[in-house]
Simulated assay, not measured.
Amino acid sequence: MAANAGSADPRLEGVFAAVPREAFLGPGPWTVVAGNGKVETPSADPVHIYQNVLVALDADKGINNGEPFLHAIWIGKVAPKPGEIVTHVGAGTGYYTALLAQLISPGGAVIAFELEPSLADRAIKNLEAYDGVTVIHGDAVISGLPPSDIIYVNAGVAAPPAKWLKALKPGGRMIFPWRPSERVGLAVMVTRTEQGLACDPFMRSWFIPCIGASLASSATKIPNREKAARSRSIWLTADKAPDHTATAVIGDVWFSSRSTGPS
């Protein structure tokens, strides 16, 4: 899994080995999602969930503990460092929050938002033993985010809210599932540089919608997958009006095929 992530950080394998996934899933047997179907594990033996499978947290709402391979890639890409501040949007029961907390220790902090009250309660209990973690039962779209070195989003958005982009510190990284339309699902890495917000759509990705940020109701330009994948920077319309390079214009945010730098 660590090798698949392509990360240069040798700690990544260690934190996946150290944090027990089963502690965040509730008692087994568990419902795992494999392919297009769901199946209950034959027993409560944790071996069944140490595979690259989704595990249902709230089956009725389609909320799962995500695939470890995907999160290994994402965590490797945002490259958490000791002392950094991470905001985790859509923390679920806290498993990947715990991994992030290990990687920013010592001296760092993780602020984890979870909208579902039952999951937030479980995350609070599950993360009691992890230093520097604060779980907030609340709406990250409405409340906005604290200044962050990393924003790790686990719910699909039509476009990242302007408040989130503004919360990125210099050199800060945000990774999120971009769902500008029903047929387009991409994982996107945003990095705040001196020239602006660089954008890298780097893999396909499908997450449940982020309530309050998943509908492109005020969009004036929705991309197909090909155009979305050509995006190389993100801008606030208040700072710069969309131009001929725009691949998507959604609310007060637009995506450009031009890299950051002088026009």
Rank of each mutant, 00 (worst) to 15 (best):
A140C: 13
A140T: 14
V141W: 12
V141H: 15
V141M: 11
I142Y: 07
G144N: 04
L145N: 01
P146L: 05
D149P: 02
I150W: 06
I150D: 04
I150H: 06
I151V: 15
V153Y: 05
A155Y: 07
G156K: 01
V157F: 07
V157E: 01
A158W: 06
A159Q: 14
A162C: 03
K163Y: 00
L165K: 02
L165S: 00
K166G: 02
A167V: 00
L168R: 09
G172P: 01
I175F: 10
F176T: 10
F176M: 05
F176R: 03
F176I: 07
W178V: 08
R179V: 10
E182N: 07
R183L: 14
V184P: 00
V184C: 05
A187Y: 04
A187C: 12
V188Y: 08
M189R: 15
M189I: 07
V190N: 08
T191G: 02
R192K: 14
T193Q: 07
Q195G: 02
Q195S: 15
Q195W: 08
Q195F: 11
L197P: 01
L197C: 02
L197Q: 03
L197H: 09
M203G: 02
S205R: 13
S205C: 15
F207K: 08
F207R: 03
I208F: 01
I208K: 12
P209K: 13
P209D: 10
C210K: 05
I211N: 11
A213L: 06
A213V: 13
S214M: 08
S214R: 15
S214G: 09
S217A: 14
S217G: 06
A219N: 10
K221P: 06
K221S: 10
K221F: 11
I222A: 14
N224C: 05
E226P: 05
E226F: 11
E226W: 09
K227R: 15
A229F: 04
R230W: 01
R230L: 14
R230Y: 01
A238W: 05
A238Q: 09
K240M: 12
A241N: 09
A241Y: 03
